[in-house]
């Protein structure tokens, strides 16, 4: 491979630009899962929640974009994705918080539910693989987009990227600067003590689960409605699972999740770009594309190996709360 094709400004800028965009879906899911897990609920069904958001959001945006609501159809699609995610969250919450079912079993089954129902509804209603949404146009931030290099990388994105950046701040603010965030964290660390001090443990956990799945549903919808503008089976590519690993990597902190997601976005972008290059530069030293496609998954395993065995997880994570016990 001719390395000058990679090591030049234009290519690196394109890479960074794509990396930031590709980080968005997984970052949204990870942010949501941070809120959920901080309250002590482990949502292993994240990938199924993202698929539910992705398929519902895509279908809504696709059907609405030729009607009277065409102007806001893409954003409505994203909103439907949020609602679909929350519906999945409600199922999980009833099972694990109210009924105190095993969170691992419920989560894994939720994944199959999301994929199964999602694929069924898509094939039943649209079916074709050529259906496309209109997506969102880039929204250049006046002035800021004129900054050399950075302007192009950071300030000429579609609206969901700015929204996600704001949500990183919002989740951080919610968790660490509001009494409500304090309650969420208290419930995740020591539900019995929280209960004694008058916090409604299960209500707080419901709220945290619904917020978490709303964000995961949004992440799935951003991928299908705005970024790939299509839906097909397996389109989520395990992003929900990667987000779960990101939460561990980020030590349950929104800021670190941002950093981790950017790393993944970049790995994804490299994978796409080098693939495209290999096709131009046939022959010498080309890497089989399967190995490039493996990059995000290998990276996830490396991240887990690096982070594993260190604490920081919410104390009561994965354990249902029974009044009067500890």
């Amino acid at each position: 491979m001719d390395w000058s094709l990679i090591l030049n400004w234009g290519f690196l800028i394109a890479l960074a630009t794509a990396g930031i965009t590709l980080a968005v879906p997984v970052l949204l899911a990870a942010l949501g899962e941070i809120v959920t897990e901080r309250a002590g609920v482990l949502n292993l069904g994240l990938d199924g929640v993202m698929v539910a958001g992705g398929v519902a959001g895509f279908m809504a945006a696709f059907y609405l974009q030729n009607g009277p609501l065409a102007g806001i159809s893409q954003w409505l699609g994203l909103a439907v994705g949020v609602l679909a995610g929350m519906l999945m969250g409600l199922i999980l919450a009833v099972l694990t918080i109210t009924l105190r079912a095993d969170q691992v079993v419920a989560g894994v089954t939720l994944v199959v539910l999301g994929h199964g129902v999602g694929n069924y509804l898509y094939r039943q209603n649209i079916g074709t693989l050529t259906a496309r949404t209109n997506g969102l146009p880039p929204l250049a931030l006046p002035g800021l987009n004129r900054i050399p290099v950075l302007g192009e990388i950071l300030f000429n994105k579609d609206g969901t990227v700015y929204l996600t950046a704001f949500l990183v701040f919002l989740v951080w603010f919610l968790l660490f600067r509001t009494t409500w965030g304090l309650k969420i964290r208290a419930v995740g660390e020591n539900p019995a003590a929280s209960d004694t001090s008058g916090i409604n443990v299960n209500l707080t956990r419901y709220a945290a689960t619904l917020i978490g799945t709303a964000l995961a549903g949004l992440g799935g919808a951003v991928l299908t409605v705005v970024q790939l503008r299509m839906f097909r089976e397996g389109i989520m590519g395990g992003r929900g699972w990667i987000a779960l690993a990101l939460v561990i990597f980020a030590r349950w902190r929104p800021g670190l999740a941002l950093a981790g997601a950017l790393m993944f976005g970049l790995a994804d972008a490299i994978q796409y770009r080098v693939q495209a290059l290999s096709q131009i530069e046939r022959g010498v030293g080309t890497i089989p594309y399967e190995f490039l496609l493996m990059l995000p998954y290998i990276l996830t395993i490396l991240v887990l190996l690096y982070r594993a065995g260190r604490g920081d997880a919410p104390e009561a994570l994965g354990r249902p709360y029974v009044k009067g016990s500890d």
Binding site: I91, L99, R100, V105, L110, V112, H115, G116, N119, Q124
Partner: peptide, 24 residues
Amino acid sequence: GLPDALANAIQAIVVLSVLAVDAL
């Protein structure tokens, strides 16, 4: 012409239901 993904959906719903019934 119903998508055969229905099988997966039913399978997941069955297991979730068992989980709920057991928990109850």
